[in-house]
Design a protein around this nucleic acid. Sequence first.
DNA 1: GTTATTTGACCACG
DNA 2: CGTGGTCAAATAAC
Length: 368
Amino acid sequence: MQDGAGAEGGMQLLLKILADGEEQARRLGELADDPRSRPEHYRGAAARLQCTFGRAAAAAKAVEAASGSSRGTDRSDSPRSADESSGRTAAVAAAAAAQERQPLCKRRKGMPRWTLKFRVPDANLEGTPDDGFSWRKYGQKDILGAKFPRGYYRCTYRTTQGCPATKQVQRSDADLCVFDVTYQGEHTCHQKQRQVAAHGGAQSPPPPSSHHAEQQDPSMQLLMGFKDALKVETEAPHHHDYYDHGPASAPAAPFSFPSVMPFHHHVAGGEAPDNPATAAFSPPPAGSSYFSAPPAVAGSCYDVVFDYDAAPAGARARRAAESSELGEVVSRATGFDYSSSLYHHAELDPHLPFAPFGGPSSHHGPFQ
DNA sequence: GTTATTTGACCACG
DNA sequence: CGTGGTCAAATAAC
């Protein structure tokens, strides 16, 4: 019973989150229309969107788990992760567990992490794609099985402003024009602060918490971000055209989610951990949970793909291959010549404001 | 002079 | 013990 209720409440929450995502996507579209938009703007918006989807995914997962457990037909042929197929009560448990899980007090774990796939048409394949931020390279490592070394970067303002953002850049083995850029940690430095403050009305009631608060509470930060990205305009969902060099017509059709939530589709054709990203980035057969927005203004688009899987690199790939992978999303951006795919490995659910699951007072839209 | 990159060593995790 | 991520000294670039 509780499960059922949890599922319903979860579904509502899910819908709510999806609505947020829609708005964020719209906003991203709006950015595209604004010639003043910069890569960082897109990135920021994409990041927010990504977070939203991460939440949505988690919510969906929870809902599924809830309904699944009440059904009684769990486990057996579900190749999913064992921990989740064991039919938990619901998201509440998962969320709680996630929040409680923090024995890793050593390294930088627990920070939001996502991967963007930058595809460089044929121009910028010289070096790392510019995402609008200043990075300082602090290392390079040859990765097993990878043809090219992986570059480690951290925010230039790490020492001066204590910005925790880091990224890892790696060229795809197969496609030289594809870069896997894994970001970790949000920028707290001022370089990105001007992310998206372009809006009429009471735009930017100054992001009050933009430096310290976020470091302590990622979820808080995320919520703030949501609030920040409320108005938007989107385009019609397309298929898997990850990059459309469309004319500058940024029409705009309401962004609506197809049949997305429960995406269970196997993607990789096997265990080719070489490039999990490639799998998601490559042409999804028909009917995959992939949809990107078409033609942007100038040519590039952001294909955002969420992959919630807490596992790092290797395991992640395998998981993506074996179990259901969620691919999803997106939107386009303009101004640059690369398209990218954004992956999201919700480090589990470090930021899952799921508390009010199954409760009536769930998530009242405090986004403002 | 400064600041960024390179590069091997070190260390943590699985 | 292998792999991946970071540090830090040396080097290069500005």
